[in-house]
Design a protein around this nucleic acid. Structure first.
Length: 1048
RNA sequence: GCGGGCGUGGCGAAAUUGGCAGACGCACUAGACUUAGGAUCUAGCGCCGCAAGGCAUGUAGGUUCGACUCCUAUCGCCCGCACCA
């Protein structure tokens, strides 16, 4: 009886399906365990062998936990909204719903082939209205909530209006615009529109204008983590800054808790580090300096910047508009260096720039600002030139009254801190280079720690030239400096975050519609002018002038800092006029109107004014519905909850279900979601927790990041020749390839001669004489190469131009070159799991994926090695059945050695599985089978235990043999074997005996031997005697159950 | 530049707490069985050496009776961040 994996696997897959073997109940007395794979996007390309790595690992663990008696939730579904489907629709005219459906089918069949233990009754798709109904519902909860900073949790917006009615917003400063201040009386006096504008500045999901990452080619806005080096992550298209009306999530209010929560979860240090960096919390102070503008009395005129960007109206809020002297606020993490300030630098977009520029410097500043505008994001990132321009103005040092020149330079970013810095060249590298470049004097406040040629960012130096801070160690001076600043009323302690609020809308079709309608009241000019154009008017809104309440807060990258007076500029060449407008009142749909279904469209082009395609749908715009859709991460931010209660049409997830399943115990996925998906879903979870909708505030208890499977490319070497006998022409139609091993003698006369002879023979023409040749390496499909040996016939069929290819072989074979590269269709090094499952079976495939190496490590794929794993399964089979003799297993009682072998295997496999060391798990099973084979053991009692521990790795063969042994129930629920330690107890051990740390001999000694007994035995040993050469040892180290070391 | 990770045979790797380096597998070599072998089995397989033995975990030091493991420096590769004040 042979191991016929094809039939066996088909049979059991069918059986498990019919018996609902993977169905999971929420009602169980067993302890729960939740294993989750990161939500896949079903791409059109299908899976290659790299994709299922994490799925196999989580599947093994889920099956293992089940055998261990847990009620295991292990679901799968599809994050199916997204750009590629829409891009495909644009290119091929196929509706995203259709292509997505096709992709899911392909995906599913590939998954089924590998036999995962998913409960498919719980499958979810983000594109399903019964799913996105609840995405919309959660959005409405976010919209209807604000973050109470005092209580450090999200609260319903009604609680906020109650505060306003009572005390105004004194106790709850506006997170969106700190300049908004009002009393209870004023609040009551505001009209509806004004009230809504104010509330919008508090909501956790809010609408505003801001600079966003706009990708023209994709026609959409991208989140920060979707932009790589100024290009879109998908497709690599250029990304520019553009102002658009956007929805945002106020994730910044959760920054501290997202940071603190990392202490409570089991993620890799690298992952925690990435998230921590992304959040970018820093401590420091904001310091305000008086500014002296020589010769300035006249009202500010239109500056270079505001001319270039008509939308930049924020200047109206800057101090320029008032009659008071201008003041400059900087953010610094090093207030201890206050006396080392030699100049100030403000961002070229800084609102104060026009105001403080002196008449004499005006032309120079205009020229500089124009230069900065001309530089693209990419250029700024690529070449870090030192540039800048003096404004003519001076800041006044608050303690010593010195005049500090104010410069502007692009190295200071408008989006971080206050958009202005105090430059301390002796302690900051960039400041120092700037000072050097412009020949500015450098004050040394750290004495010998500063060598005059290089800044020293130390915190350990004792301060000098620093007035009241003199003699203090810098790190101690920080708090003292802040204290003085606060006392003087010119500075304030300040925590800053690098993270920005998350842009939460896309100008696209294939996403969740926002359950929002826009009401445009009688006061709104937008209404009169734009009708359904929903605030895309190209002219200025009057809101600013009227109320000064700006909704124009923050994109993810460039934030409007009202207090610091930074205004947002725009790159030149963009349409004007969307800055800081209002856009009517956002009215949430009633819960009963959900889901707001995505209407069918035939065309996917942008709306009349650059909105998403929904703006072209009359039935949509007539209802004044929001035309943006939600971004890819909306549906994936809470999906792990839906799996717990997937068919609930009353709630997103019942509290009973989420309390039962709780956190995801094990979450497996790639690192690419480190700062995107993981932060967003952590925030959503905290929000749902705050609002009492779930009982835990971290979604994923343990996160494991699988490594990437790289491709192992194969190359053939085409020989291009010149010479007599028309060889060039001949080899053009009949390409000649040189076996890779022969490259070792490239350039030698031997190879030249070899090629010459070979070509003469190939073309049967003695007139041919090769004068020179070059080799060019070409990628060849790895699937027609066995290890490194090319299948010549398959190669000739691979491409028509190689149909009559000729080969110069070595030892009758064509050997390919190889190189590890990214796995990619383009490099012909992708391998489809389907092919391997067909050839070796799913069990072999699963085990080989694991056998490759540690799950978390990246490693290249080598198909050849799969045969070792396959041989192992066949060897296992032969413990039960012989090809000719048939059944060989018996019910005889096992010997002690056999028990020992099996229990050792059980113990080590369990240990490996528990540690996620699946590669050693597989090798332990191999060792076990090898041992049983050597013992010639075919005993049922032993083999049964082997099968159970094998089940998570190779379920089909385990189930088949389990039944062959006469079992009636499924092995999937068999009890995991208990190790009987008595068989593993040893009475003696073969100790390695080392001389000076080097193993020289071996001695079998009883485990309970004493030091003295051991010393006697060791000294009696012939090998030790030899090494001692008659001397007596200095010392004999004896570590029980480990080793013996004789020190001479 | 900053942060994190990793360097072990021809290859993928193992060594869980500082205790026999290279388990397990691929590839390779020799042999057996066989009509056949891309099946199976047996043996070998880090490097140098006939051997005794020596040398070996990127490199150089250190701690220790003992170091792949800990410490210091250095080189290389991978990942993340990158004017963050």
């Amino acid at each position: 009886m042979e191991y016929n994996f094809g039939d066996i696997e088909k049979k059991w897959q069918q059986h498990w399906k019919e018996t609902g073997a993977y169905k999971v109940s929420n009602d169980s007395t067993r302890p729960k365990y939740y294993v989750l794979d990161m939500f896949p996007y079903p791409s059109g390309a299908g899976l290659h062998v790299g994709h299922p790595l994490g799925y196999v690992a989580s599947d093994i663990y889920a099956r293992y936990k089940r055998l261990k008696g847990f009620n295991v939730l292990h679901p799968m579904g599809y994050d199916a909204f997204g750009l590629p489907a829409e891009q495909y629709a644009i290119d091929h005219g196929i509706h995203p719903a259709v292509s997505t459906d096709n992709n899911i089918r392909t995906f599913r069949s590939q998954l089924d082939n590998i036999s995962f233990c998913y409960d498919w009754d719980r499958e979810i798709r983000t594109t399903d209205p019964s799913y996105y109904k609840w995405t919309q519902w959660i959005f409405l909860q976010l919209f209807g909530s604000w973050y109470d900073r005092a209580a450090a949790k999200a609260m319903p917006i009604e609680a906020l209006t109650a505060h306003f009615e009572k005390d105004g917003n004194k106790a709850h400063p506006c997170p969106g615009d700190a300049s908004i201040r009002f009393t209870a009386e004023e609040w009551k006096g505001f009209g509806l529109r004004r009230k809504e504008e104010i509330l919008m500045n508090y909501r956790l999901a809010y609408c505003g204008y801001g600079e966003v990452n706009w990708c023209e080619a994709l026609g959409t806005v991208l989140a920060n983590d979707e932009v790589v080096n100024g290009l879109s992550e998908r497709g690599g298209f250029p990304v520019v800054k553009k102002k658009l009306r956007q929805w945002y999530l106020r994730i910044t209010d959760y920054a501290d808790r997202l940071l603190a929560g990392l202490e409570t979860v089991d993620y890799s240090d690298a992952m925690k580090e990435m998230q921590t960096n992304w959040i970018g919390k820093s401590f420091g102070a904001e310091i305000t300096f008086d500014v002296d503008v020589p010769g300035a009395t006249a009202a500010p005129h239109a500056s270079a910047l505001s001319t270039a960007t008509a939308g930049a109206t924020n200047a109206s809020s800057s101090s320029a508009a008032s009659n008071t002297k201008p003041r400059l606020t900087v953010y610094t993490t090093r207030p201890d260096t206050l006396f080392g300030v030699d100049f100030m630098v403000i961002a070229p977009e800084h609102a104060l720039l026009d105001t403080i520029t002196t008449a004499g410097q005006k032309a120079a500043i205009e020229e500089y600002v124009a230069y900065v505008k001309s530089r693209s994001e990419r250029e700024r990132m690529a070449e870090k030139k030192i540039t800048g321009c003096f404004t003519g103005a001076y800041a006044i040092h608050p303690f010593n009254g010195l005049k500090i020149p104010i410069w502007t330079s692009e190295y200071v970013l408008a989006g971080y801190g206050t958009g202005a810095i105090m430059a301390v060249p002796c302690g900051d590298e960039r400041d120092f280079r700037f000072a050097r470049h412009f020949d500015l004097p450098v004050t040394n406040i750290i004495g010998e720690h500063f060598n005059g040629t290089e800044a020293n960012p130390t915190k350990e130096a004792k301060l000098q030239n620093s007035d009241f801070l003199d003699g203090l160690v810098m790190k101690d001076a920080i708090l003292i400096a802040i204290h003085h600043l606060e006392e003087k009323g010119i500075g304030v302690r300040k925590v800053n975050y690098r993270m920005r609020d998350a842009a939460f809308s896309r100008q696209r079709y294939w996403g969740e519609p926002f359950p929002i309608t826009w009401q445009v009241d009688e006061q709104s000019e937008v209404h009169e002018r734009g009708g359904a154009k929903l605030g895309r008017s190209s002219e200025q809104s009057e809101v600013h002038e009227r109320g000064g309440a700006k909704l124009g807060r923050s994109s993810e990258q460039s934030e409007v800092h009202e207090r610091g007076g930074v205004k947002l500029g725009r790159s030149s060449g963009e349409p004007e006029g969307q800055g800081g407008q209002s856009f009517g009142i956002a009215i949430p749909l009633d819960e009963s109107q959900l889901p707001l279904e995505l209407p069918h469209v035939e065309k996917y082009g942008p709306g009349p004014e650059g909105e998403g395609p929904l703006a072209n749908v009359a039935s949509w715009t007539s209802r004044h519905l929001e035309t943006n859709t939600m971004p890819g991460y909306a549906g994936s931010s809470w999906y792990f909850l839906r799996y717990m209660d997937p068919h609930n049409d009353k709630e997103f997830c019942s509290r009973a279900a989420s309390d039962y399943w709780g956190q995801v115990d094990l979450y497996i996925g790639g690192t690419e979601h480190a700062v995107g998906h993981l932060l967003y879903s952590r925030m959503w979870t905290k929000f749902l927790f705050d609002r009492g909708l779930i009982g835990h505030e971290e979604p994923y208890k343990r996160l494991v990041n699988q490594g990437m499977i790289q491709g192992s490319s194969r190359f053939v070497y085409r020989v291009e020749m010149r010479g007599a006998g028309n060889v060039e022409e001949l080899t053009r139609n009949t390409p000649v390839f040189l076996s890779g091993g022969l490259r070792a003698i490239e350039g030698t006369p031997e190879l030249h001669e070899l090629i010459n002879l070979a070509v003469k023979e190939i073309f049967n023409d003695t007139a041919i004489d090769v004068e020179s040749y070059t080799l060019s390496a070409l990628h060849v499909d790895v699937n027609i190469v066995d290890g490194v040996e090319l299948d010549i016939e398959a190669f000739r069929k691979w491409r028509s131009e190689y149909a009559n290819a000729q080969f110069i072989l070595e030892e009758g074979k064509y050997i390919c070159g190889s190189e590890v590269e990214k796995m990619s269709k383009r490099l012909y090094n992708t391998v489809n799991p389907n092919d391997l499952v067909l050839k070796y079976g799913a069990d072999t495939f699963r085990m080989y994926e694991m056998f490759l190496g540690p799950v978390e490590q990246s490693k290249p794929w080598e198909t050849k090695g799969i045969e070792g794993v396959h041989r192992f399964l066949r060897k296992l089979w032969r413990l039960f059945f012989d090809e000719t003799k048939g059944k060989v297993w018996t019910t005889d009682a096992p010997t002690n050695d056999e028990w020992k072998a099996i229990y050792r295997t059980v113990k080590k496999t369990e240990d490996s599985t528990e540690r996620f060391s699946f590669n050693t798990g597989v090798s332990t099973l191999m060792i076990g089978v090898n041992e049983l084979h050597d013992l010639n053991c075919h005993k049922k009692d032993v083999l049964e235990k082997l099968l159970i521990v094998l089940t998570p790795y190779a379920p089909h063969i385990a189930e088949e043999l389990w039944h062959q042994l006469g079992n009636e129930t499924s092995i999937l629920d068999a009890p995991y074997p208990q190790v009987e330690e008595k068989y593993l107890v040893e009475t003696s051990k073969n100790y390695p005996v080392a001389i000076n740390g080097k193993t020289r001999s071996e001695l079998n000694i009883a485990l309970d031997a004493t030091q003295q007994q051991v010393e006697e035995l060791v000294l009696a040993d012939a090998v030790v005697q030899k090494w001692l050469e008659g001397k007596s040892p200095k010392k004999i180290v004896y570590v029980k159950n480990k080793m013996i070391n004789v020190v001479i």
